[in-house]
């Protein structure tokens, strides 16, 4: 079983997000980049699949930060067998069309049985990398998956719909899976182990060609603007309760008795 996981790095959402001077996107240089959380689940699901059925896990990503090695070393520490990075002139925040094309081109020759990737990422909330890799490779795609079982040329995947409805798909391999959540929480890779691996592991490098570009541009990015102003009411709980009741009555939401 040849399992490939496609990953990407995104801005760390626990940091303060900054908008660039042009107001057209994030100020990428001011931000710290971390592995997309959904991709962490894709790695976990891949390692679980390997542990269940055997095979190898290859992790691949486009190096848009110059720091992808750290994410790849972490994946190796968690149980991936090899790591590949696609290098070239790809800035932080490279669009998903470009990344999907680069990854599809790089993995075609690996003839993967199954490709796992995070169903989406918090930077563009685009959710397109998985479907586009599948389209480039001409194989089926199932997204919002919460569990993968592979056996003899097929994969059984669990997909989650709104309202808690679940579906089980049987799909002929090869295929691409968009992982919503692994069926176990992603494991912790001890920093001690990551540092050991960083000293010895070899990351394969592939030079990426020109991507197709997204075809759309962001005209304006801005922080939420407050529409109105909140009025703070002071006073004893009884006084405040009375004001609330009066207001609700004024708005016709309740009747005052």
């Amino acid at each position: 079983m040849n399992i490939v996981v496609s990953i990407k790095q995104i801005p760390n959402l626990t940091d303060e997000l900054e908008i660039n001077a042009e107001g057209t996107g994030l100020d990428h240089d001011a931000l710290q980049y971390v592995l997309n959380e959904f991709d962490e689940h894709a790695i976990e699901e891949a390692v679980l699949a390997k542990e269940a059925t055997g095979g190898t896990v290859t992790v691949i990503g486009v190096d848009t930060t110059g720091e992808l090695d750290g994410a790849l070393h972490t994946a190796l520490a968690k149980g991936a067998d090899s790591a590949v990075k696609i290098t070239g002139d790809f800035p932080r925040g490279t669009d998903s069309h470009t990344q999907a094309k680069l990854i599809a081109d790089a993995i075609r020759g690996m003839s993967p049985d199954i490709v796992l990737t995070g169903v989406q990422a918090a930077d563009d909330r685009d959710g397109q990398i998985g479907p586009m890799i599948a389209a480039h490779l001409g194989v089926p795609y199932v997204g919002v998956v919460t569990g993968v079982q592979v056996k003899e040329g097929k994969a059984v995947v669990h997909k989650e719909y709104a309202g808690g409805v679940m579906a089980e798909f049987e799909v002929a391999l090869p295929m691409v899976v968009g992982v919503q959540a692994a069926h176990q929480p992603p494991r912790y890779a001890p920093v001690s182990k990551i540092r050991q691996i960083a000293k010895t592991a070899k990351i394969d490098e592939v030079t990426g060609g020109a991507g197709p570009r997204a075809g759309s541009t962001v005209r304006r990015m801005f922080k939420p603007e407050s529409a109105g102003h909140a009025e703070m009411w002071e006073g004893s709980p009884e006084e405040v309760a009375d004001k609330i009741a009066t207001l609700l009555a004024e708005k016709g939401l309740v009747k005052r008795g």
């Binding site: 001890p190 920093v191 001690s192 182990k193 990551i194 540092r195 050991q196």
Partner: peptide
Amino acid sequence: GEKGLFEM
């Protein structure tokens, strides 16, 4: 036991 984390 997490020496690597300490070093980082």
